[in-house]
């Protein structure tokens, strides 16, 4: 990173800010596409773009571990989302397009506005203290230590939650014996 700083000094620009804007240029249009694209699969792929840009933000902030975890978990996770979307929906959704009824539209609008206001207020609040500490190069070690000392309980709760989710998913996906299903279908 010394070279990076050297370059920054020489060029007399804030390279970090420049990279931040570059990432924003990728992330924000992608986020809009996620919302407005008719094809659910394509929005899934745009979501990967959003998360990729966010991963870049983490890298700027020198949080390597978080950035890589973000990349690894979310790309794979989103691939799964895309696959599930593919299997459960008509992949060529954009050709159909369902009209939304007026009442639904109204309630949707209300919910969206409230949600937006909440997030906006949260972000605008002035309580974002800037830490003057430099990032420790051994931050992975620190994260690891923190997870099994200070934050052991939340960590365990999270893992139990994930385990429960996993079991639930298995139960849902578990195939019932084929012949039973066919019998029921046959009787009806």
């Amino acid at each position: 990173m010394e070279q990076f700083e050297l370059l920054t000094n020489w060029a007399q620009v804030n390279v970090e800010a420049f990279v931040l804007y570059a990432l924003a240029i990728i992330a924000i249009p992608c986020a809009f596409c996620v919302l407005f694209d008719r094809a659910i699969i394509r929005s899934g792929f745009f979501l990967i773009g959003v998360f990729g840009a966010v991963c870049g933000l983490f890298l700027i902030l020198q949080a390597q571990f978080l950035a890589l975890a973000q990349l690894m978990i979310y790309t794979v996770g989103i691939t799964l989302v895309v696959v599930i979307a593919l299997m459960l929906t008509n992949p060529r959704l954009e050709k159909e397009g369902v009209a939304v009824e007026g009442r639904e539209r109204f309630s949707g609008l209300v919910i969206a506005t409230v949600f937006f206001l909440t997030i906006y207020c949260a972000l605008r609040s002035e309580s974002w203290p800037l830490s003057s500490l430099r990032m420790n190069p051994e931050n992975v070690k620190q994260i690891g230590a923190a997870l099994i000392t200070t934050y052991a309980l939340p960590f365990e709760f999270a893992s139990v939650l994930l385990l429960a989710a996993l079991m639930g998913a298995i139960l849902l996906a578990k195939a019932e014996p084929k012949n039973d299903v066919s019998k029921i279908a046959g009787e009806n």
Partner: peptide
Amino acid sequence: TGIFYVLAASSVPVV
């Protein structure tokens, strides 16, 4: 985090 980086990179191609 070298090996972690490599693994993160290798998980992307499936997309």
